[in-house]
Every structure is written in structure tokens, then in C-alpha cells.
């Protein structure tokens, strides 16, 4: 994963410690509260969520803008609402 400049965000949710598929349930609800085009930052821990949340978001028409490792096993993910 290459370092990225974090995009400006409209909302952030911290899902560290949560597991699949509740990670995507909460991501989806947070996206629903945003306007199309707005950016959600999601903080995730663990391998499965880091793989599944961006995949599921893409499947539902959202844009995965960037992903960065924030700490050991913790990933920050930026999604633009589709």
C-alpha cells in the first residue's frame, strides 16, 4: 500500500474491532446518510474487513478513492458515495 494524502472527508466512522459483515452494514448506513459525491472515511482493523468492505462498496456503486495503513493491522479507507 502506498502512502496517500487523505482526501477531504465529510464523515468518519471507526469500525476497529468489528467483524464482517457488520463492518459493511455500518459502512452502508453511514453512506446512506451522506449526499452523493460526499466522502466517507472508514477505519477498519483485520484482514477480512480490509478486503471485503471496499469490494462490497464498489459492488454497490461507490468509489474507492484511497486506502492507507494507519497502524499495525489498521486501515483507513476513503469512499465517495455513488
Amino acid at each position: 500500500m502506498r502512502p496517500v494524502a487523505p482526501p477531504p472527508t465529510d464523515a468518519t466512522i471507526d469500525l476497529r474491532g468489528q467483524v464482517c459483515p457488520m463492518t459493511y452494514v455500518r459502512t452502508k448506513l453511514a453512506l446512506e446518510r451522506l449526499e452523493p459525491g460526499h466522502v466517507l472515511e472508514v477505519v477498519l482493523s483485520g484482514e477480512e474487513p480490509a478486503k471485503n468492505v471496499p469490494r462490497s462498496a464498489r459492488e454497490e456503486g461507490h468509489e474507492v478513492m484511497a486506502m492507507a495503513e494507519a497502524a499495525e493491522g489498521v486501515v483507513r479507507l476513503w469512499l465517495r458515495k455513488g
Partner: peptide, 8 residues
Amino acid sequence: RATCAEAG
């Protein structure tokens, strides 16, 4: 095949 969305 399993993504989270498929658990719905």
C-alpha cells in the same frame, strides 16, 4: 465469492 454483501 463471499463478500459481506452476499450475507444479505
